[in-house]
Amino acid sequence: MAEQSRMNIINGVASLLVLACGVIMSSLIGALLNKAKELIQTQTDYNISFSDQPVWALGFAYIIPGVIGIIVTVVRAKGGYIAHMVFSILTLLVMGIFAIVGIIALGALASINPPSCSTLGDSSAACSEAESIYGMGVGGIVMIVFGWIFTLVSTILTGILACKPQIASGPTQFSSQPYPTKPF
């Protein structure tokens, strides 16, 4: 009983960390897209509208299992554990793909040098903008990786908790027998 209670608390903490990673990642991606849009519009006459798309909602892939995990920690229902495990497995698959794509994109972003970021003239403002975009991209990938790890931990704990028998506090199905049974 005490072991199951401790595992449930650890699952709640892991779910809270998954939720935090989702919120931070949504904030970072939203700020990253706005900063990239501003930088591109100041450097060229090209009007880009990808920051108007809800790409920042990618953080909801962690927010939803995090919230479900916190609710299940309080409720302790077997069906809730199973629902949390399903959402967590889907999140692990989707965010694993996004982590790989993000790492490839960061590698490509690190290899290009913006035309305004050269050693000639005073272009330190454009260089710092490009560096801040890269830094936010790295932060987003770090949040994806941490969220993925916490989701994996939470999924494993939820699977264990879903498979353990629930300890009933009231009368059991065997208590209505007319005479007690003795083990051999």
Rank of each mutant, 00 (worst) to 15 (best):
P183A: 13
G121V: 13
G69M: 01
F184D: 14
I167Q: 06
R6L: 10
I133H: 10
E129K: 12
M85Q: 07
P54N: 02
G147I: 00
K182H: 10
G59N: 02
I133T: 05
A36S: 13
I82C: 04
V101S: 00
G140R: 02
K182V: 15
L152A: 03
K37T: 07
M85L: 11
A168W: 05
I29G: 07
S15K: 00
P65N: 09
T181A: 09
P171C: 15
E129G: 08
I156P: 03
A99T: 15
T158P: 02
H84G: 02
L17N: 05
A168G: 00
H84C: 05
L58T: 14
L120G: 04
I48N: 01
S111W: 09
S111M: 09
T44V: 06
L106A: 14
L90P: 08
S169H: 06
L16A: 05
D122H: 12
A126R: 10
D45M: 03
L109A: 14
T158H: 02
L17E: 08
V13T: 05
L157P: 01
G159F: 13
Q43W: 04
A61I: 04
C127E: 09
N11W: 03
I29C: 08
A77Y: 12
I133A: 12
K78I: 10
N11S: 04
I82S: 08
S169P: 07
S5F: 04
S176F: 00
A36D: 14
I156H: 00
I89L: 11
I71G: 00
A125P: 04
V153T: 11
Q4P: 11
V142Q: 12
T91S: 09
P65Y: 15
I40H: 09
D52V: 00
G135M: 06
V23W: 15
P115D: 06
D45K: 02
L93F: 12
M25P: 00
W148F: 06
W56N: 09
I112R: 08
V153N: 14
V94M: 12
F146E: 15
I89A: 13
P65M: 10
A61F: 03
S118C: 10
S15Y: 01
Y62A: 15
V94D: 08
L92T: 07
V86L: 15
P178C: 12
I156R: 01
N11Y: 07
F146K: 07
I149N: 03
G66Y: 14
I149K: 01
K35D: 11
V75D: 02
G135D: 08
E38V: 13
E3A: 15
L58N: 13
Q177Y: 02
K164P: 06
A57K: 03
I167E: 03
A108T: 15
L39F: 10
T155A: 12
A14E: 00
G137M: 02
N34L: 03
D45Y: 01
I144N: 07
F174S: 06
I40E: 14
M143G: 05
N11T: 01
L161K: 01
G135P: 05
S132L: 04
Q41F: 07
A20F: 04
N8V: 04
V67L: 10
A31V: 11
